[in-house]
């Protein structure tokens, strides 16, 4: 995921240089719109969660409109909002619900991100309350027998610092990462699933998209429901699953021309496969 993204950044650098060489600097940032051919450059900045997804969508958009260049930079949701407000970026990426003071911006949701708690399939525990999850992750409960399981020590699987899944998880359960007593720290979702699938006493959390897919492929894991809501892409999509968040792209003015074309494209069905590849959930099916 990150590799692809970095490649893309290099690509945009090369593009910039080429543009400069060709002496088209003056028109590089101009956005022109005609019925059959779009051209110009889109600068998109903001949340690192969204950046790989938008970069991939941008690549495909570029392949449809060869004269368009999409430049994606990260820096967090707040940078996305600030850059759009100050006009440094055409589009901002915000990986959370819009705040009340951000009503001046035009927000478009492209996908949702849901995080589900997973156990090994053979673990007899069927459900955990939020308090139990918090107690397990902060090291207050260290044996499965305390939550109705077998007499076995719990292996707590946590995510590496900086990952969006970690942020969503900690935010929902209101715990600080310094308080988490982890036994295993993992990077991406697949590694988390392999770790839980290989350890009958492990508990972890991953993006629901990945977990649902792997579960359907016969990987021995199970997704726990949270607050009585089953963890599935369906409940993430309709917003009923509590550990989830919308992923937005925002503009300062109502989008026109190239910006509008890109936003329409990012919200269209044509990019659903990219969204799923990045373990997010498309808004409509």
């Amino acid at each position: 995921m990150s590799c692809v993204f970095r490649l893309n950044r290099c690509g945009s650098l090369v593009t910039l240089l080429t543009l400069a060489l060709l002496g088209t600097l003056g028109s590089a940032t101009a956005q022109t719109f005609s019925a059959e051919q779009l051209s110009g450059k889109l600068v998109i900045t903001g949340a690192s969660t969204l950046a790989p997804l938008i970069a991939e969508i941008g690549k495909r958009f570029e392949s449809h409109y060869p004269k368009v260049r999409v430049d994606v930079q990260t820096g967090g949701s707040s940078r996305g909002v600030a850059d759009v407000r100050q006009g440094f970026a055409d589009i901002g990426m915000v990986s959370r619900a819009m705040k009340a003071e951000e009503k001046d911006l035009h927000a478009f949701s492209v996908a949702r991100d849901g995080v589900g708690v997973i156990l090994h399939k053979e673990n007899p525990v069927q459900a955990l309350t939020d308090e139990q999850v918090v107690a397990i992750y902060t090291g207050k409960i260290i044996n499965w027998k305390d939550v109705g399981g077998k007499d076995a020590p719990i292996t707590v699987v946590n995510k590496a610092e900086g990952r969006s899944t970690l942020e969503v998880f900690l935010h929902y359960f209101k715990i600080r990462n310094t308080d988490v007593k982890a036994h295993v720290v993992i990077g991406d979702n697949e590694q988390g699933i392999k770790t839980v699938a290989g350890n009958r006493h492990a508990i972890g959390y991953v993006s629901i998209g990945t977990a649902e897919y792997d579960e359907s492929q016969g990987v021995p894991i199970k997704l726990l429901s949270v607050g009585g809501v089953a963890a599935s892409t369906e409940t993430v999509r309709n917003g009923t699953f509590p550990i989830s968040r919308p992923l937005h792209i925002v503009t300062r003015t109502p989008p026109v021309g190239l910006t509008k074309a890109f936003i329409d494209y990012a919200q269209s069905k044509a990019v659903h496969d990219i969204i799923k590849q990045q373990y997010f959930v498309p808004m409509v099916d």
Binding site: A152, P153, T155, H183, V184, K194, T195, N199, R200, H201
Partner: peptide
């Protein structure tokens, strides 16, 4: 290591990794 060795070690002494 992740799919063979780690589960084996987890059998002897959890967590495995």
């Amino acid at each position: 290591g992740l799919v063979v060795l780690v589960p084996l070690i987890a059998e002897i002494q959890p967590p495995g990794p």
